[in-house]
Structures are given as structure tokens and as C-alpha cells.
Amino acid sequence: MATLLRKIGLIRLHDRDTEDPKHYQGSFKGSKSNQKNNTKHCNTSSDNNILNPPDTKTKKFEQSNKDKPPGKEKQTSKDIKEKQQVAASKAPATPLQPLVPHRQHCTQVRTRRLMKELQEIKRLADNFITVELADDNLFEWNVKLHQVDRDSALWQDMKDTNTEYILLNISFPDNFPFSPPFMRVLTPRLENGYVLDGGAICMELLTPRGWSSAYTVEAVMRQFAASLVKGQGRICRKTGKSKKSFSRKDAEATFKSLVKTHEKYGWVSPPVSDG
């Protein structure tokens, strides 16, 4: 029996010794490689958990930089600086104060002057002239001249024809009193006396060259009354001439023509001192 057991043991030992050791080595290597693979797999998964997020951000940042055209940010900042410099150069150093329009200022000056003159004319004691606003327009007057030299032929004509006054129309320009008014005779129709077609009046002081802002309407009308007498003005009694219309258009055209003539040959109307 002992001999049999020994033989069985020898056979097992012989079988173990005769087995290919590579088989065990392969199993061992396989187990080691499996361990290495498992380890590497765990390390890879752990690497993904830790390193992947910043790695992804880096790739996205690099991709976004690739999508942007080169030098765009620098160019934009440069453009902004240039625009700021241009805006600064155009901007005034100090804020400008709003200016009063020239036309509005002239209207205020003209209004104050005419209101003052209206009050002064109303206070005249001799009733030399009276004034009515044409269509309630402060800048256009209908002036009635009630008196001329009582020794003149014109005064006699006024008495004979029951003419109480000589009616004139006066228009004041925007820049009055720095420019002269335009004045013309409406009724009656006059001959001579420096009164021309359309009722235009030949007087140097009614031109820009002869005008002064110190002249008042009263002073102009007194000068006109004197020129009528000195120019031997008469009331026109001829039927054809008396019916001729005195339009403003005709008066303006006549006045422009006579101004050109007198600027070339000189003025012969009586000076202001004769009034």
C-alpha cells in the first residue's frame, strides 16, 4: 500500500514536472497584463475625470481664436481711439451760447421805434399829420398830411378842391430805422413837387445813401411838405391823369429808376435844412 501511494505521488510529481511551464507563465503574464490594463483603464478614466474639463476649455478657446480674424481686436480698439480723437477735435472747447436770430432782433428794434414814434405823433399840438395803421399792420402806415405852406399854390388847390389832406403810404423794412422807409403818394394825384409816376417821391433822404437812423417820420413828412412847395406841386385836375392808377409796383419801379439817375448826375431835391 505504501508502495502504491508512493507511485501515485511520483506520477503526480512527474506530471507536474512534465507540464509546460509556459502555460503557467502565460497565465501569470495574462494576469499581470490584465492588472496593468485594469490599472491603465482606471488611470485613464480618472484622467478623464480630472484633466478633461480644462483640456476641453483650452481646445474651445483655441478654436474660438482660430475663428476670429487676425488682428480684429487691435483694429477695433484703434478705430475706437481714432473716433474718439475725431469727436474731441470736432467738439467745441466751450459750450456755445444760443444766439438771438438777427431777424428777430431787427423786428424788436423796429417795433419799439415805431411804437415810440406813434406816441410822439399823437402828442403833436399842431395836428400836422395823423397816422392810421394799414390793415392793423404796425409796419405799414397811412399818413395824412394836413398842412402845407399856406402861401403856396398847392394850399390854394387844396382849398378849391375841398381836399383836407394828402394821403401817403409808408412801409417800414425789416431793418428800420437803419434803412429808409418806402413812401409814396396815394391821393390826390399831384403834379410836380418831386412826385412822379405811381406816386413815387424824389427825395435823397429816402435812399440808403441819404438816410439816417436819426430821422423820424415826423421829420420826413415835414421835409416832404417843404419839397412839395419848393417843387411847385399842384393837384392834378386833368381828367386823364387824375384817373391814372397809382400802384405800388409803378411807384417802386419809378423810384429805382430815379435813384439810378440821381446817383449818376447828382441830387437836386431840397436839402433837409430847407424844411
Rank of each mutant, 00 (worst) to 15 (best):
L4M: 11
L5P: 04
R6H: 12
R12W: 00
R12K: 10
H14Q: 08
H14K: 02
H14G: 08
R16S: 10
E19F: 12
H23C: 12
Y24I: 13
G26T: 12
S27L: 14
F28E: 06
K29Y: 03
N34R: 08
Q35H: 05
K36G: 05
N37H: 04
S45P: 02
S46V: 07
I50K: 09
P53R: 09
T56A: 07
T56N: 06
T56R: 12
T58W: 00
K59Y: 11
Q63D: 11
D67H: 04
K72H: 05
K74Q: 09
T76Q: 11
S77V: 11
S77G: 05
S77L: 13
K78Y: 10
K78Q: 10
K83P: 00
Q84F: 02
Q85H: 01
A87R: 09
A88C: 03
K90E: 15
A91Y: 08
A91R: 14
L99R: 14
P101A: 14
H102L: 12
H105V: 06
R110D: 12
R110Q: 15
L114C: 12
K116Q: 15
L124V: 11
N127L: 11
F128M: 09
D136V: 00
D136A: 10
W141I: 03
L145D: 07
L145Q: 07
A153F: 08
L154I: 01
Q156I: 04
D157L: 01
K159R: 10
D160Q: 05
T161A: 07
E164S: 03
E164C: 00
Y165L: 00
I166G: 02
L167N: 06
N169A: 07
N169C: 06
N169E: 12
I170C: 09
I170S: 02
P173M: 04
P177I: 10
P177F: 11
S179A: 15
R184C: 07
T187E: 14
L190Y: 00
E191H: 09
L196N: 09
G199R: 04
C202T: 08
M203W: 12
L205E: 15
P208N: 13
P208F: 00
R209F: 10
W211P: 00
V220I: 15
V220Y: 01
M221T: 04
M221A: 06
V229D: 09
K230E: 12
G233C: 11
C236G: 11
C236W: 14
T239E: 13
K241A: 13
F246Y: 13
S247T: 15
R248Y: 13
T254H: 01
K264A: 05
G266Y: 04
W267V: 05
P271N: 13
P271Q: 05
V272C: 06
V272M: 14
S273N: 08
